[in-house]
Structures are given as structure tokens and as C-alpha cells.
Amino acid sequence: MNKNYNFAIYSNDQAGILNRITAVFSRVNLNIEALSVCESEQNGVFRHSVQVHCDHATAFRLSKQLERQIEVIRAAFQADDEMIQQEVALYKIASKSMLEQTLTEQIIHRHHARVLSMNSQFTVIEKTGQRHESQALFDDLSVVGVLEFVRSGPVSISKPMNAEAMSHDMSVFKQNATCDADHQVDV
């Protein structure tokens, strides 16, 4: 069954590593739905968060292909429902709609959004939440006119009960992770 899988790919800091990572996905014709890169909790180690829509078997195979890359330290993946996710959305509207219509203020208030920046011409509104929440605000604001809209894509972190599955312990070598322990038979 296809669903959204979120990969947490830890790599060394080397020019071109992002292309190596995305090539693993594009090779099997998967579109990356969301991507963010940042330095991880460990100095000099980068975390690439990649979301793709695929089945579990594909996600498993991709994680192994990712870990095969020399500069990748670890590649773990989890489905959406095993993660806590959040994204930031920014909306640019004409300031006059703020000044002339109380509706705009009501919308912002109702969605628990906030005004990030405002001048005589335009106002930027920020909303942090899940995809459906930022979409709902967009739909409501469309009535007064949205000049520009951007969302970060989800950033995800594993739920506490899955800490073992998504071990961040870099001292655990990647190859020892799952392979030979996963599939043993009773003899």
C-alpha cells in the first residue's frame, strides 16, 4: 500500500551528496514530495529529510540503497502516522484588505495565524501547523486575495515510542542496522 514515507538521511558534509541522495529516488521514478536539509544534532553531520509516496517494500529497498552511498551514515524511514510533523506557511496579502475589511482579521484570528510583517502595501501572515491547516487558511484568505503563498513542506520528527526504530546513535554502523537480524528462521 502506498503512503507517505519520511526518510531521515544522515550524511557527511560533502559537495554533491544531495544529488547522490536524490538520484536514488529519481532512479525508480519517484517524485520527492518534500525535502529539507539542515545540520543535525551532531556537528558536521547533515540531516536530509525526504518525503516520498511509495510502498513499504520500495521504501525499505531505497533505505538500503541510500546507506550504500559512502557518505551516507544512516538512512531511516517512517510512515506519516509514525511521525510528528509541522510546516510553516507564509501568505502575502494586500495591506488595504487588512485595513478595509474586518473579515481578514477574523480569518487570521480564527486560524491562530499571526502577522509577521506589515507595511503600507502588503502584509505577510505566518501559519505554523499541519498541511490541512495551512491549506484551510489559504482557502479562506483566497476570498480577500492572496498575492503570494509559500509553505516549507513538513519537517518531521519521530514519535517518542519509535525512538529505537529511528536510532540517532551515529556510533551504530549503518550496515549492522537491520539486514542480518531482520530475517531469521527458526531452525
Binding site: 525499505f60 529497498r61 538500503k64 540503497q65 550504500r68 550496515q175 539486514c179 542480518d180 530475517h183 528462521v185
Partner: peptide
């Protein structure tokens, strides 16, 4: 390790 279970399931 990426070859394990890639094409044929290994018991």
C-alpha cells in the same frame, strides 16, 4: 547489505 532481500527473500 543492500543485496539482501532485494530480489529474493533470504530466510
Amino acid at each position: 547489505p543492500s543485496e539482501i532481500n532485494k530480489n529474493v527473500h533470504a530466510d
